[in-house]
Amino acid sequence: MLIKNGMIFTMGEMNFEKGDILIKDGKIVDVSENINVDDEYIIDANGATIIPGMIDAHCHLGLIEENMGQEGSNVNEVSDPITPQIRAIDGINPLDGGFKKAVKAGITTVVSGPGSANVIGGSFAAIKTHGICIDDMIVKSPVAMKVAFGENPKRVYKGKNKAPMTRMANAAMLRETIIEAKNYLNKKNIAKEKGEFFEEKLKYEALIPVLNREIPLKAHAHRADDILTAIRIAKEFDLRLTLDHVTEGHLITSHIKKSGYGAIVGPTLSFNSKIELTNRSFKTSVELIKAGVKTAIMTDHPVTNIERLPLCVALTMKEGLSFLEALRTVTIDAASIVGIDDKVGSIEKGKDADIVILDGSPFDIATKTLYTIINGEVVYKAE
């Protein structure tokens, strides 16, 4: 496939006022001002805007299905507050209607996983938004391990008259499980060295990639004190971490910057449904980015519908983000924060050919998606 004559925002080293993109075998093989090759399927973008496929860095797409009620809700296993062994890919339904809406909106990758009912909720997966078999859609799985602070675990398990009922218990149960997993890993390594049988337990096996810093904890934290607790625990055990929601992040920007962890902000286009959302503001992303914190914007679908991700970004621009700063929050910076920027997030040689062609700015409410391309395949074309 050859895409010609588009205004290309690569999110890499160079943008093009009028440029071409050559795709082969699902990958980008060249981006330059004028590419001429024979026998290729050509899309003449004719001055249209071309961006990398957008990324929603935190949602529950396919785990809370449209029009399905309880039968389609697979997002929270509320029988136990510690469930690291749960995997998003075992619950995501690629045939859920939200996937087509994401594709039409130009969202080509989502990071989807368990909700925040549990202290440890299970693993998230980064997946493409087109396909019928989840195994064929995976960018990276597991991509993160969900943990939750604040109101949600307290509320769920107080109703069951069991821990955690306080923020102290949220933190203590997380620490305790991390220590148990470390002890498990040490015993496993010793048994391996001695050539002895070792009985594996899926609960702790799931946490080994976290302990080995292969994937981060994905911390649900709205309130400032919960954000700081997440940072405290990650530093205590030398773990990778992403700060998700970060509703009061603008109140503690210097602390988040000092931590070195990335922030995934949202869902800001939503109702203040609980106390810890009191300080919800579209200024949060602006203040974090100004402070030098790598920041992504997310929908938390279905809290905010997945197709409204560009609108969430547009409303943040009204508070002071430039166009390129805004575009980074749903492309290269989103990819970098979740650890998939080697594959997606920019239009550069060697990366997956996930590309969106639009008739205007992606953050203008009147803009139409002309083409959505995933892995070099046109998966949406405007009529």
Rank of each mutant, 00 (worst) to 15 (best):
L309C: 12
H60R: 05
E248P: 10
G350C: 02
P209N: 15
E319L: 13
R280Q: 14
A144E: 11
L277E: 00
K257Q: 14
E200I: 12
F124W: 08
N183W: 09
I64N: 12
A169V: 00
R175G: 06
T253G: 00
E205H: 00
R167K: 10
G159R: 10
L211E: 05
N36C: 08
K381F: 10
L95T: 11
S361H: 06
L174G: 04
N15L: 13
K235W: 02
K4V: 09
V119L: 04
E65G: 08
K162S: 13
V78F: 09
E33G: 09
E236I: 11
I134S: 07
F363R: 02
G131Y: 06
L243F: 01
I332E: 02
I178Y: 01
E348L: 12
M173W: 02
P114F: 11
E40F: 03
I190V: 07
L63V: 13
Y157E: 10
M137C: 08
K100C: 07
L22A: 08
C133G: 09
I23N: 00
V246N: 11
I42G: 13
D20W: 12
M165D: 12
E319D: 07
Q70M: 10
F16L: 15
A314I: 12
D225K: 08
I51V: 12
T177W: 03
I355R: 11
F9H: 04
A191D: 06
T166M: 13
E319P: 06
T229K: 09
A172F: 01
M173Q: 08
I297W: 05
L22W: 05
G260E: 05
R213N: 13
Y157V: 10
V78T: 13
